[in-house]
Design a protein around this nucleic acid. Structure first.
Length: 871
RNA sequence: GGGGAAUUAGCUCAGUUGGCUAGAGCGUUUGACUGGCAGUCAAAAGGUCGACGGUUCGAUUCCGUUAUUCUCCA
């Protein structure tokens, strides 16, 4: 069975069991501070488990794109070395939310694996939770009894809390799980030893294939467990692994999920897969990482220099490094593999097909950038080797500097050192690493206290679309410490405050009562929870408060947000339908819109975009809002859906003229476009390969902009005495200035020349030295020129020039090089001594030195004393 | 969020106890050689040393602030 049918069979099977089949959520997670990427199938249902969201379907199944590269599940460094770790993988799963439980979950899993996929029953083993006395938990008898009916008892293995009890985090929903393991060893091996003894022992051929989690408890802060009223089923089956089993392979990489990529890589690198351990690893790394970065970029996460974007960059760089070191490919080529991937997965995951061009462009650019980083690191490394050749040990601190500051991978440093017969002081390197880690941890440590729950309410009601003021009660709060700040997070039963999301900043405002005025400094979202940030708590937490949003900030933010929608559509009209939103930021000051486009916008295009937006503003189009419509209907209406945004099945739709702009959007907007007033683009720049950024202002800010521009022109006009043609007048001025500057230079040259000839005339020959000490009226730069110029004409020169500028004296001494050498004269020393006369100090080189001081009266004596040096 | 680094000619970069009136290669322009292309040789132009402030007689160099970029950690 090929991988495409395997995936389809899974979804069809659960569809036939009345499951709603849903799309994969984006790999890139928004609104969850604890998670950067989707790392398990259940992530998008976290709010349901936590009770923050309502259940829309009782039964769901899907295939979920997952990425395990950071945090608790970090498989990045393992990828490639074995046959089963991946950064990106698909997780097949079926869920029950308060609907069916252990019985059906077990029955269906068995049916699918053995009846549908036809896996040999003798090769399957079951694990169930054995119980844990320290938790006061008994063996999962329920699961055991169900399994016993379908599987011989000796194939059911009791597992510990570590293997068979699943927890989402330190607190929250959890429960026992039951895993299905499969033994894919050769028949002869299976006959020799029992597979049961190899379950959970790390054998790559006796592996877990499906994990069925039964969520029935809630872990409280004090560590105790309570039984949940609604029990859930959460299952996960690794797709790539399933393919391996069904295709009778011993490695995920041997399945048709990876083989086309592997062949392509081997082809292009001109190596054969399966002959050499090192090149095999490299090929697997590249195949895996290409998938991860392509899907991440499609989900809207561009490589960048921090956070999630940085993780993506690192994955790509790991791939480039393996290609560079083990395949000897030193030019960008990973981007060229993309068509193979798109060909293979584009029909299921449409996002990589529709964005193929931009993904390729971004990868190419990143490859080039990293190859540059590598060559810089190599240069640094070779410099180091050549300057400290005697010891043949590379300092840990230098290796760390290369890694930390220049991004040069440590194992590459090791490899290069080995080639030269050097070693690296790894303990020094590790020490630097440790220091860096502890520094970061202590700085980033956020100490969140327990939630203090005052009321039990399911979900905060957001009323901010309709009102900016509401009577509210506090349902829970907690104190949060981060580094030197301490603040409170407050959750309300309902709130007019918009929480930061979709690029729009969170609201500010206050909680008011007769005696209290608590300032809300920001509003953020943690999953679906709207959290208000405040520096202090109200005195009486049980009271009802008036929650008031900062109206000015909200209105101006809405201006900018609505303008962003108009801009988006205008860009599509002017530039074409390839425009995809890649990022957006909206606050009360301005708006920022990143979008895919391949060249700089011309002045004309920018003017056209501005023109369209301003026309739509003048049309004063009223907003059409539909708050809860099914996503299918929204798409029918032509709404622009954004990759990288997570949508429920019901969405909010914002239209300004249904024939013009329709977008799915949770943000706050103006009632009619006329409120925006005026729209002005202030900058257009590139931010990544194929991605451009427009920054713009609206309303008051735009008017201020034009006012200040106009004032500037008025000022210039005034200064130039109202010329007919201001541009011509300025050009004339510049030209005149250039001419004058030229003349001035000429004049100074002339003057210097005259002074020079006069000075040369005054030179006296004393003891075979051409001596002169004079005061002149030139600035310091000209004196320097003068001194060098005289030196080039007069041999055996001892020259002292003094001058006065801004009421301060300064002296310069110039001595011919041969005198410096033969007579031991040193201009620097001489000038230091003479500087005493003018209450100053100075220095310089042995043939030319300068000094400055405070006492003008000392110039004469300094000039007089200079003769002592040649006598 | 925290650390490290970079920013010098159109491009790629040198430039250490603060003072060599700021350099190289490539590119550009001009001239010579050649029938032309190309090339060789010679010469020239091109610098607010990222911005602002401080220390100093003097700052590309030292210190602080800031901007941008790179990089590592969380």
């Amino acid at each position: 069975m090929d991988s495409i049918s395997i995936r389809k069979t899974f979804l069809d099977f659960f569809n036939s069991k009345q499951h709603q089949i849903i799309d994969s959520a984006p790999m890139v997670v928004k609104n969850d501070p604890t998670l950067m990427f989707t790392n398990a199938g259940m992530n998008q249902f976290k709010d349901i488990f936590l009770g923050n969201s309502q259940i829309k379907y009782n039964r769901i199944a899907n295939t979920q794109k997952c990425l395990r590269v950071s945090g608790k599940h970090n498989d990045l460094e393992e990828v490639g070395k074995d046959t089963y770790h991946h950064t990106m993988f698909e997780m097949l799963g079926n869920w029950s939310f308060g609907d069916y439980f252990k019985n059906e979950a077990i029955e269906w899993a068995w049916e699918l694996l053995t009846d549908v996929y036809k896996i040999n029953k003798d090769q399957l083993y079951i694990t169930i939770f054995a119980g844990d006395s320290s938790e006061g938990l008994e063996k999962d008898k329920e699961a055991f009894n169900y399994w016993k009916e379908i599987v011989p008892e000796e194939r059911i293995i009791l597992g510990s809390k570590k293997d068979n009890f699943w927890e989402m985090g330190d607190t929250g929903p959890c429960g026992p799980c039951s895993e299905i393991h499969v033994d894919i060893r050769d028949k002869s091996e299976r006959e020799k030893s029992d597979g049961a003894s190899l379950v959970n022992t790390g054998n790559p051929l006796v592996i877990e294939i499906w994990n069925l989690v039964f969520i029935e408890f809630n872990r409280k802060q004090d560590g105790s467990l309570t039984s949940l009223p609604a029990k859930h089923v959460d299952t996960g089956m690794g797709f790539e692994r399933l393919c391996m089993v069904l295709q009778n392979k011993k490695s995920n990489y041997d399945t048709d999920v990876f083989q086309p990529l592997i062949n392509e890589i081997a082809n292009r690198a001109n190596v054969k897969y399966g002959l050499n351990e090192n090149t095999d690893i490299a090929i697997r790394v590249i195949a895996d990482h290409l998938r991860a970065i392509s899907f991440a970029i499609a989900d809207g996460q561009l490589p960048s220099n921090n956070k999630a974007g940085y993780v993506i960059r690192r994955i790509l760089r790991r791939a480039v490094r393996y290609a560079y070191t083990f395949l000897g490919v030193k030019v960008p080529f990973i981007n060229e593999l993309l068509p193979t991937l798109v060909n293979q997965m584009g029909h299921v995951f449409k996002e990589i097909k529709s964005q193929e061009i931009i993904i390729k462009k971004v990868i190419t650019e990143e490859e080039n950038a990293f190859l540059r980083t590598l060559s810089k690191g190599i240069q640094k490394f070779e410099n180091y080797i050549s300057t400290s050749y005697e010891k043949k040990i590379i300092d840990g601190s230098f290796a760390f500097e290369l890694f930390d500051t220049y991004g040069f991978p440590i194992d590459l440093t090791q490899l290069m050192a080995e080639e030269k017969g050097w070693t690296i002081d790894m303990s020094g390197f590790n020490k630097g690493m440790e220091e860096q880690k502890t520094r970061s941890r202590s700085a980033g440590a956020i100490n969140a206290g327990d939630w203090i729950v005052l009321q039990n309410t399911e979900e905060t009601e957001f009323v901010g679309y309709d009102t900016l003021e509401a009577e509210v009660n506090i349902i829970k709060y907690r104190k949060v410490k981060s580094k030197d700040k301490e603040f409170f997070q407050i959750v309300l039963d309902k709130t007019p405050f918009y929480a930061e999301s979709g690029g729009q900043v969170g609201d500010k405002g206050c909680l008011l009562s007769i005696n209290d005025n608590i300032v809300i400094v920001d509003t953020k979202k943690e999953n679906n929870l709207i959290v208000h940030l405040a520096d202090e708590l109200p005195d009486d937490l049980m009271k009802t408060y008036t929650a008031k949003v900062d109206i000015d900030k909200r209105i101006h933010t809405a201006d900018n947000h609505s303008a962003t929608h108009l801009l988006h559509k205008a860009l599509r009209i002017v530039l074409g339908n390839h425009i995809e939103q890649k990022g957006s930021y909206v606050d009360e000051e301005r708006l920022r819109f990143d979008f895919s486009h391949f060249s700089k916008l011309t002045d004309e295009e920018i003017i056209n975009v501005e023109k369209i937006v301003n026309e739509k503003i003048r049309e004063n189009i009223h907003i059409e809002e539909q708050r809860n419509i099914p996503i299918e209907k929204a798409k029918e209406l032509g709404a622009v859906a954004l990759f990288g945004e997570k949508y429920g099945d019901f969405v909010r739709l914002i239209a300004f003229d249904t024939n013009f702009s329709i977008e799915l959007c949770g943000g706050t907007h103006v009632d009619a476009t006329g409120n925006i007033g005026l729209f002005k683009i202030v900058s257009e720049t590139a931010i990544a390969a194929g991605v451009r950024r427009i920054e713009a202002i609206t309303a008051d800010k735009a008017i201020e902009y034009y006012t200040s521009q106009s004032n500037t022109i008025d000022e210039i006009n005034k200064i130039l005495k109202n010329p007919k043609d201001i541009i011509k007048a300025v050009n004339n001025l510049i030209e005149q200035n250039n001419n004058l500057q030229k003349q001035l230079d000429e004049f100074n040259k002339e003057k210097t020349k005259i002074v020079k000839t006069e000075l040369i005339k005054k030179i006296k020959k004393i003891n075979n030295i051409n001596y002169l000490a004079e005061k002149v009226n030139l600035d310091l730069k000209n004196i320097k020129d003068l001194a060098f110029s005289i030196k080039s004409e007069i041999n055996d020169l001892f020259l002292l020039i003094a001058t006065e500028s801004d009421g301060k004296p300064s002296i310069s001494v110039m001595i011919s090089e041969n005198l410096v050498k033969d007579k031991g004269l040193n201009a620097s020393n001489i000038v230091k001594e003479l500087a005493k006369e003018i209450d100053g100090s100075g220095g310089g080189q042995s043939f030319f030195a300068t000094a400055g001081g405070k006492n003008i009266m000392g110039i004469e004596s300094a000039l007089a004393k200079s003769i002592n040096y040649i006598n």
